[in-house]
Simulated scan of single mutants.
Amino acid sequence: METKKVWFVTGASKGLGLTLVQKLLASGTPVAATSRTINELKQAVGYEGPLFLPLAVDLKTESSVGEAVTKTVETFGRIDVVVNNAGYGMAGSLEELSDAEARENFDVNVFGALNVIRTAMPVLRKQRSGHILNIASIGGFTGAFPGFGIYCATKFAMVGFSESLAAEVAAFGVKVTVVEPGYFRTQFLTAGSLAVPKNEIAEYEEVRKVQSLHQNDLNGQQTGDPEKAADVMIRVANDENPPMHLFLGQDSYDLAYAKIDQVKKDLEAWEELATSTAFESEKA
């Protein structure tokens, strides 16, 4: 009989994380799931039984994350798939957002994920197996979203360290996939998941338009189905040759190809001048 993989999912009380956890439990897969509030997590997941380990975790505190990882291993004996899903959106121009607002977004979206990786890797390394899925965003591949510079920066950081992590842990049999979704119909654009600047600057009219578009027009109208996104992630986690980059949704693909085309255009337009920078004696 096939042994089910043990999953460890952060940010599991809402969004893609919640849908993923519910699907895994419905299929008989053991899951350790984290959220800041355990009662909210239990209520959202709506499942009770030995397969489900709900954990209250402060991702910004390494000791809290470490306790959760230890509890998971004590309960299930191992961890096979780690999903860094926790995070929140941040709207506002770079000038508007304070140092504290920007750092808080990085603390959760970037350093929270690094805390999970740092505490889970000894388990995966000892097992000589495992798979880490870091949930970034298409905003971690293209930053062409006025008013989302800090959020995009946190997701660009996740994409970058995921690529490095994949190279670092391959020798231990551990795989890494960075997931870059487009717009999915979750609570991501609601007030509880999308922060806005405390001190808005009136001159940033384009930023306000984009902010309003996300909060009022796109929210609830996203074309992406989170159920299907969860299915794709589960399939990827069970694949022998999973992708390093997983773009999710047609919109994500369209934006990724547009970015690639723009980079290619810039490369070709400036290649002759930009590659004429070697010392004369070292030119080919």
Rank of each mutant, 00 (worst) to 15 (best):
T75N: 04
Q43R: 11
L114E: 12
N216C: 04
T277D: 08
L97G: 02
S35C: 08
G192W: 08
S164C: 14
G17H: 06
Y204P: 06
Y151A: 03
N115W: 08
T3D: 00
E271T: 11
D99W: 13
T61P: 01
R128C: 08
E67T: 12
N238P: 04
D225T: 05
Q221G: 00
T70S: 13
A113M: 15
D225H: 10
K198H: 09
P54K: 07
L51W: 01
C152Y: 02
K259T: 09
S137T: 14
G143L: 00
D261N: 14
E240W: 05
K4H: 13
V45S: 05
P122R: 11
G87Y: 01
T72C: 01
A120S: 14
G49P: 08
D80H: 00
N238G: 10
V196W: 05
A144N: 15
V81E: 01
L59R: 01
A91D: 09
L218Q: 14
F52E: 04
R208G: 12
A12Y: 00
L255S: 08
V81T: 03
S35Y: 00
F172E: 03
P197T: 06
R103H: 13
E240F: 06
E163I: 06
G220Q: 13
V159Y: 02
V73T: 12
T3Q: 00
S129R: 15
A157W: 05
M121N: 12
E205M: 00
M244Q: 11
G92L: 12
F279K: 09
S35K: 00
L55D: 06
G139K: 01
G140Q: 07
V31P: 08
Q221Y: 15
N134G: 07
R78G: 00
V9S: 04
Q43E: 14
G15R: 01
D225Y: 11
P197N: 06
L25C: 09
K198S: 11
G11V: 07
G17Q: 03
F279A: 11
N134Q: 13
S212W: 03
T275M: 09
V207H: 03
V73H: 02
K71V: 04
E200W: 08
V123S: 03
P50D: 15
